[in-house]
Design a protein around this nucleic acid. Structure first.
Lengths: 223, 223
DNA sequence: GTCTATAATCAGATAGAC
DNA sequence: GTCTATCTGATTATAGAC
């Protein structure tokens, strides 16, 4: 009995722990997206999760670790999405018109960007502080975060190079600049401004930002 | 004698005061550009200016006022630049090739954006915190700031509409979205990332960002 | 592991002499 | 107006009972 019960009990406790920590990271994620790292206080997190602040510090040793955990979770979600997208070998025939004029690589880059914007509009995109902060240092020192960042960059980087080869992405742009430009969509203030103006639906905002990102501001005279 | 000396003396004192306050805003401007509002401390400002913190508070009643003064200064500089650009009625024949295919409005929009990027790369662009903060509220309550912002927006807005009429800017984009997209160049993290990577000169960075902003990421197949 | 209560620190703001 | 010294409040982090 004890031989079976003991491991089960441990597993249950571990599950509870994991669930609790997941609830914490979810709250942190939301607050990070809403106010950013500096403005977010540990008291707020504790209040939102519904536990005492001291209990938080049993799970995470510092505010930076707390935020790191949320960022890692988000990064891994992105990684999973991109890997899934990458495995879809067959060209999607949903949008026949687009597929004929655009290569698969560009299609994936656009899908990724759209996914990012949707997440951001849903308030689930924990944004990095634009200026150097203690959080940046913690993230750089975090193996899981850097691993995720590298895998994500590799996937996107390969698509970028491929899209340039296929004549879909401007080959004059350094791939790294394209990568940064796509990353920047995750913290694009234009999205927030347009949302605040309440003149456009979320879908419209996404289409506007997708257009300015891939087609630019200028009219396509011969398009 | 005193009739002349008194006003002169007052004027001199006023000049000193102005010079001192200019030195303060210059420091604030630099720190704001380097670290942002939250990370910048009043102690730092005092240390950089070379006066005691209490003396700072004789000039400005709060950290917000301090930052506001710097932002207002920057906004007025932008306003002056744009008004100057606006007064150049004659189409610049410097770049004959560009002038033939692009209207004057687009030319001015590009010049403004380039100017912004240069300022940013020079570390003279005090960036707004991306998330809501006490600074935002202070700026909204500041008449000179809001006046400058409105004048700047009016000038840019007129050029945007004109450029759309001339077929240079994508007419499908709401003018307000174009305006926000241009404003966003002032706090574009891509610029910082590219600068940190040290792979490109400032001129190259500007050209890259100008390209992604106006032409987008995609190749111009029929351009 | 969770709680209440408290320590420790840091940064914005002020008092008061000169 | 400038200084040194100090106050105040907010926030990160911890001690210690249960």
């Amino acid at each position: 009995m004890t031989l079976i019960a003991e491991p089960l009990k441990k597993s249950f406790k571990a599950q509870m722990l994991e669930a609790r920590e997941h609830a914490i990271t979810a709250s942190v994620n939301r607050l990070l997206s809403e106010k950013g790292f500096d403005a977010m206080t540990v008291d707020e997190v504790a209040a939102e999760v519904g536990i005492a602040k001291a209990s938080l510090y049993k799970h995470f040793n510092s505010k930076e670790e707390l935020a790191c955990a949320a960022m890692v979770q988000a990064m891994q979600k992105a990684q999973a999405y991109l890997e899934d997208l990458n495995d879809q070998a067959a060209p999607p025939r949903l949008t026949a018109l687009a597929s004929e004029t655009q290569g698969l690589a560009l299609h994936k880059l656009k899908a990724s960007t759209r996914w990012t914007l949707q997440l951001k509009l849903a308030g689930q995109m924990p944004t990095l502080p634009s200026h150097n902060s203690s959080l940046r240092a913690s993230l750089m020192a975090s193996r899981p975060y850097m691993d995720g960042l590298m895998k994500v960059s590799d996937l996107l980087g390969a698509w970028i190079v491929q899209a340039q080869k296929e004549g879909d992405i401007n080959p004059a742009l350094p791939p790294i600049a394209v990568l940064y430009t796509l990353y920047a969509r995750a913290c694009d203030p234009v999205v927030e401004f347009l949302k605040m103006s309440e003149l456009h639906s979320n879908e419209e905002i996404i289409e506007i930002v997708m257009t300015t990102c891939f087609d630019g501001l200028m009219a396509r005279k011969n398009g």
